[in-house]
Amino acid sequence: MLRALEAELTKLKRATLPLWTLATVCGAPTLSNVFATANSGWTETTLWSTFVGLGPMSMGTWYGILLFGLITAFLFGREYSEGVATNVLTTPTRREYFVLAKFAVLAGWVAVLALLAVVAQVVWASALGLDGATWSSVWSCLGDMLTVALLIFLTLPLVALVAVMSRGVFAPMIFSAFGFAAGMLGGIAGWGDWLPWAMPTSIAGSFMGPMGLASQTKLDGGSWVIAVGVFVLGLAALLYWVNHADSKS
């Protein structure tokens, strides 16, 4: 397992995707700016804490599903598209170790990006010279960002499954785009308490609730059971597939 993990980390050397994902989260606060500017009459009253609170909303509503889907597609589909899969699968390592190592890397990558997204949001809020900076809003942003990232992460085994089934990166990206659309539509339709892709959108709406900009949706225990259930089932299906399906480059 450790050697599979070490190999996964080595593969990222000189890869450009980590830099692009970094640039995306660092540039994401501009979405908050756009959002604030689009709401005329609100811009003048925007507080530092409000701006920071928009960070998790941006991730949950806009870029999170697509960005993390892209990373998943890269990690799980790259070996097929580059013709390396057969080399990997003919090494004397259990295939589930490869899957788990990739998920460990994916989890780490998502967590780092979530933390950087908080930092970026705080830096941008400060750079804009907004008033009302408080530590409590930073902690609140951190908690919300990690919650959104976790909810999206729980849907990623299905993206990975599409990547290995389709043996490439294109289909999982299309799947992520559908997930993004489902999240948007499900959020609007109020399905956020049961549709995993709509959960990040819905709780992102809750972040805006106190501002009167969106309805507030809280996820109860049942919602979390569904989200975790999707993760477990997706991972089980993925492990079954890599162990039992025919493998081709």
């Binding site: 080595t10 593969k11 050397k13 000189r14 890869a15 450009t16 070996e79 580059e82 013709g83 390396v84 899969a85 057969t86 080399n87 003919t90 480059s249």
Partner: peptide, 14 residues
């Protein structure tokens, strides 16, 4: 066993 199957793919970035 050592093996090479069809196009010998490698990680291009490495």
């Amino acid at each position: 066993i050592g093996s090479m199957v069809e196009a010998a793919g490698s990680y291009g970035n490495l």
